[in-house]
Design a protein around this nucleic acid. Sequence first.
DNA 1: AAATTGTTTTTTATCGATAAGCGAAAACAG
DNA 2: CTGTTTTCGCTTATCGATAAAAAACAATTT
Lengths: 296, 296
Amino acid sequence: MKSDTVFKQAFNQTLDLLSAAGTGAPLPSENALSADLGVSRTTVRKVLARLSERGYVAGQGRNRVIASAVPDGAHFPHPETVATAKQVEVHFMEWMLRGQAQPGTQINELELARAFGVGTTGIREFLNRFRRFGLIAKRPNAGWVFMGFTREFAMELFEIREMFELRSARALAQLPDSAAIWPRLRAIERQHRDLLRDIDERYQDFSDLDNRFHRLINAAAPNRFIDDFYDIITLIFHYHYQWNKHDERARNEIAIHEHLAYIQALLTRDLPRVQAACTLHLASARATMLATFEAA
Amino acid sequence: MKSDTVFKQAFNQTLDLLSAAGTGAPLPSENALSADLGVSRTTVRKVLARLSERGYVAGQGRNRVIASAVPDGAHFPHPETVATAKQVEVHFMEWMLRGQAQPGTQINELELARAFGVGTTGIREFLNRFRRFGLIAKRPNAGWVFMGFTREFAMELFEIREMFELRSARALAQLPDSAAIWPRLRAIERQHRDLLRDIDERYQDFSDLDNRFHRLINAAAPNRFIDDFYDIITLIFHYHYQWNKHDERARNEIAIHEHLAYIQALLTRDLPRVQAACTLHLASARATMLATFEAA
DNA sequence: AAATTGTTTTTTATCGATAAGCGAAAACAG
DNA sequence: CTGTTTTCGCTTATCGATAAAAAACAATTT
């Protein structure tokens, strides 16, 4: 049976909308809600029905109004709103990157399914999708093997990353003045400066900014295989640095400065300078990640 | 339930072994057969049991001998020996590349399952694995969309291919004299000359040789992401040219000459010459594929 | 007529069950 | 004791069933 995480998440989001609007206000149309929440109207109607049942909303059809304030505890608990596939991902990344798993470890579908509280199908699907990340290998009819999040893996990952990013940075620098990318680059430059100003409080926001910055560069000359590869980078970085907080503030501050130099270079469109700034930053990112292997 | 294609294929292969050995000869040990056929001993035993039952093999345990010649028609029909996953692949590639499918077409899991004669799980798994080929996209909870085997797809594919191969060719040219790759390169050069000699009869063998040649170049400096990408190339080329036989002989002959020039360049280790030969060949391969879009 | 709601049909996500296939341990032969 | 076969438990591949979610269609209101 399908899980109803979509419904529960939509329900919680709608509760927040109700709170924001206040008692007595009329509700938006079903179509509007559907667009807002990013779910089908079928789900919206299910949410509305539940809200009426609970008494938070009164009236029928197009005469619905907010009937009462939403009490604390009306939301579905967070874990119930996370899609099964996402849960598997989080569990599996933790299992892999936090060291319980040695290179060469056999992966047992049924065992993982039990441990993560999902059916074997979910595990299977995840493993199949995750295969392209290069961290697991399949032996037909005989299961999966974890290959290890090793120094070697990181080296290979960065080799490709540098190749791709250099290519995209070059392409970006050669775009005409009229290209839509330049204002976007300036906008992200501003966000870097803002973050740098509040670095002491907000240094954790860098991870997201970093991701957006590199994706913007790749967007200069779109290529689906490069985009795909960036999914791998994003996932690995996301989980790796989430559990590896050593020197995070200092690391991020340095990276912001590198980004700013890189952006300056791009804005001048001086190709050698772009390449230098790009190479410098990526080498630094690589050194940071490789350093985590030395420590261990 | 799991299909028994592994058993059936092993059975057929064993029949061929029996025919080759002739009546009266003793059978190899179960372990030897297992290694030979590339299946587990469990499956070997199942095959042996069936052979005894049919009377082709007499004796028990280590005293098994071939009892009689194998009649025609003893083999399982070929389709029964193809794993479900492979069947799905073949069907799907045909559906996709032979034009019944327009870009933007919705992919219906159940419908495909019916059409291909497999369960929905098989389709789902295939689609998930196939996603990385960049030809289909997923909209969560709402199915898959076929994006089209378009000129644009081919351009993006070749951009990456050229980037990767140039990198590998450079790495190869810089390996020391003692590297194990040089004799292998000479061996594959010989195979090219052999094929060229019999080009009229054997031009169809080029596809396999081409694949092995490019993989050898990538093996100079292994990187799992490049290997992975080469899987995409291999699959696309395999099916595309299987159904696109226009000028095949001439095409292949030209490509062999390009390969030979490329190999010569590699053997001299003259970097500019290597790059020139590599670029030339890849540009030619790209032009060949792009030409198929003009025709349509 | 356009937008909205009500209803029905279609399609996906997810589970559990089961035979095929793998691999290790036990038993056996020389 | 070495290589082989026998036996057995464990794991994967594959199916069909079912509720959730989306999408298409019909009816209604403004």
